[in-house]
Design a binder for these strands. Structure first.
Lengths: 207, 207
DNA sequence: GCCTAATCTGTCAGATCCTGTCAACTATGG
DNA sequence: CCATAGTTGACAGGATCTGACAGATTAGGC
């Protein structure tokens, strides 16, 4: 089905296996129902009943209804941080970030169809977009010290936050465009397009 | 249909005056209490009781608790759109956007202290930051056609969205930094710093 | 000044989301 | 087999937000 990341921890016993399975079921049902009726028109009770669990159990798997659609993006953020950390010190930050995001796209791989549906629901629901950006704030906090250390000159933290937020905008817009029905270009290509619009200053602000 | 109501720029009757006054009172109380205890630790009931109204009336003035702190940013967005629309066609988009944001800073003017408190609460509450970005999405929708028309080459909409989101990131980060306790630089200066980090590509993507 | 209509407010009721608690159930390990 | 720990369902409760209705306040016309 889907090869999971070994980095986090692979399920040890029957408990962890069933837990991951239930988690995926909830997420799938949440995306499906939201795609049909719209996210706001679907209640937690609806999702839980479709899966076959109680509403209370739903919240034991996901803290909020939004998270059932968004999934847990923390491991992905960690992956980005990891890639950035292992890049050569003299590599320009924009190129460095683009490489990291491309690595993230590689992880998607097999989940294309599922991911597109998810992104479509995400793009059509304001509260989901908000929650998604909230998670990006955690990415920013993780990446800021790494990026700041790579920047020459002054105000490195301020400038690092600016670059990271801008790159996340590139990421979001590229993915949202990729998920559109009529879009045929690859996610990597779209990501390159958005990055190209902002990254020309690879020589640094002083150049 | 919509030609009747221009905007509540100037209250016409006693009703509108009192309504604006109550609205400001609610907003002030919401910011004050949130600054003291934290936004999540303040209930709508607390705010309403402090102002002297019922919780139901609170929701007649603000649809959500977040909006009481954030206020209505729609008129700000319209101002930005207006400034951008009146700029010369051959002006680079980044310079154009920076001018528009600076005009926005000029509008703040007298509200410095109040605005700083508001921004501090905003920066310390993830859900508020997310809601704020959600409002920026409306700005993006408003500005995208204007900016896209100014871009040469292909994929103008995709690139316009990227630039707008990036510029909004500059705006947010500059304001958040400006509101910090130890910060002494002006908001305009900080805005120039963040813009300088991304705007070097004023010659366009092909250069 | 008075009356009618529009608007605002408070109160009540309800839907939904989310959390705490507790007893019953199940897998794991000795 | 049994003890422990994790999971679940059921109930209760707080909080946000909305709809409905009745009373109060205000605006405009007489």
């Amino acid at each position: 089905m889907h090869a999971m990341v070994e980095k986090t921890r692979q399920p040890k016993g029957l408990r962890d296996i069933t837990r991951d399975a239930v988690r995926n079921s909830i997420s799938d049902v949440a995306v499906d129902l939201s795609a049909e009726r719209g996210f706001d028109a679907v209640t937690v009770e609806d999702i839980a009943q479709t899966v076959g669990i109680s509403a209370r159990s739903f919240h034991r798997y996901f803290p909020a209804k939004e998270d059932a659609v968004l999934g847990d993006s923390t491991p992905w953020g960690e992956l980005v941080r990891e890639v950035v950390a292992t890049r050569p010190d003299d590599e320009p930050v924009w190129q460095c970030l683009q490489t990291a995001y491309e690595a993230l796209l590689g992880q998607f791989g097999e989940l294309d169809a599922r991911m597109k549906r998810r992104l479509r629901v995400l793009g059509s629901t304001p509260s989901l977009r908000a929650r998604n950006m909230e998670k990006h704030l955690q990415w920013e906090a993780m990446l800021t010290p790494l990026i700041a250390a790579r920047l020459p000159g002054q105000n490195t933290t301020l400038r690092a936050r600016t670059i990271i937020q801008a790159s996340l905008a590139c990421w979001d817009i590229a993915l949202a465009t990729w998920a559109e029905e009529s879009e045929t270009r690859s996610a990597g290509h779209l990501l390159a397009l958005t990055f190209a619009e902002l990254s020309p200053n690879t020589a640094g602000p002083g150049a």
